[in-house]
Every structure is written in structure tokens, then in C-alpha cells.
């Protein structure tokens, strides 16, 4: 990767910005990816012989491995009128973030991660609204029956 990984704190700050950016725009996507970071560490890197000796080497690594977390938005462009039709969209550049979570801090990281995501994903349907609507629905149903 060309860009350096952010610290966990910076990552959360930038991720909040990313969600805010998405909210201001009114539409768009936020992608979050997580995977094991296995190949950056010289000692844990699988040599070909090691893989041959034990094909399931990754099932039981000697030490816990860090997790790589990436976040990005979707690119959007006006279109050039040739390959893609010209739209009324604005050109949006790709924003890419990444951070490495050491194995010891996974629980703490995910607690904060959940908070940031819950706050950021404000477009999703709220539970309270639904309940109110259900109540209304019941009331309406009752009214309908009395009228009928």
C-alpha cells in the first residue's frame, strides 16, 4: 500500500469525517474491510517450505496476528459522455483510510468502532419510529374495525 497506516485514534477521527461527508452529500457508500495482516511480518511470513511442510500453517500461528482495517468511500464521476453517460453527479475523489489493530487491542478497538459506526450510519431506520408506527397501525386497525 502506498499510503501509511493511520494510528487507531486518527483512523476513528477520519472515519467519523468520512461518515459525515457521506451524510452531507446525502447519498453514497462507505466501505469497511477487515482482514488478517499476515504478510508484513518477517517472522510470520510463510516460506514455501513451511507451507509445503504444513499446508494448514495459518490455522495455528505461533503468535496472534494483527488485523488490518480499511475504510473508503465510493468514487463518483460526472461521466465523460462516451463510455458513461453524463450525469448530474459531482466528481468525488476516493478517500482511503487504513489502520492496524494489534491483537491485544481488538476488544477496545471494536467498542469504539461500534460507536463510530452507530453514529455514522444515521440513514438506517430507527427502532423507535417503527414502534410508534406499529402503535399507529394498531390504532388505525381498531378505528377501521369500529367504523366498519
Amino acid at each position: 500500500m502506498a499510503e501509511a497506516h493511520l494510528s487507531n485514534d486518527d483512523f476513528f477521527a477520519r472515519l467519523t469525517d468520512l461518515f459525515g461527508h457521506n451524510r452531507r452529500k446525502g447519498h453514497g457508500s462507505v466501505y469497511l474491510t477487515q482482514k488478517r495482516l499476515a504478510f508484513d511480518h518477517g517472522s510470520d511470513a510463510p516460506s514455501p517450505t513451511k507451507v509445503l511442510d504444513d499446508p494448514l500453517w495459518d490455522m495455528h500461528p505461533e503468535s496472534p496476528l494483527p488485523i488490518l482495517i480499511r475504510a473508503s468511500n465510493n468514487v463518483s464521476s460526472k461521466g465523460d459522455g462516451k463510455g458513461r453517460p453524463i450525469t448530474d453527479r459531482k466528481n468525488v475523489e476516493k478517500i482511503k483510510l487504513s489502520t492496524i489493530v494489534p491483537p491485544g487491542q481488538i476488544d477496545a478497538f471494536y467498542a469504539r468502532y461500534a460507536e463510530v459506526c452507530k453514529a455514522g450510519m444515521s440513514g438506517l431506520r430507527k427502532r423507535d419510529k417503527k414502534k410508534k408506527k406499529k402503535d399507529k397501525k394498531k390504532k388505525k386497525a381498531v378505528e377501521g374495525e369500529t367504523k366498519g
Binding site: 447519498h27 462507505v30 499476515a38 440513514g123
Partner: peptide
């Protein structure tokens, strides 16, 4: 089964 190659992608989308 495949801890090294498996990745989890989450996507939050708002579609107008």
C-alpha cells in the same frame, strides 16, 4: 477454516 485469506467487507450505502 481459512483465517489468512478471508476478509470481511461491510458496506454502508445511502441510495437516493
Amino acid at each position: 477454516a481459512r483465517p489468512t485469506t478471508t476478509r470481511i467487507t461491510s458496506k454502508y450505502t445511502v441510495l437516493r
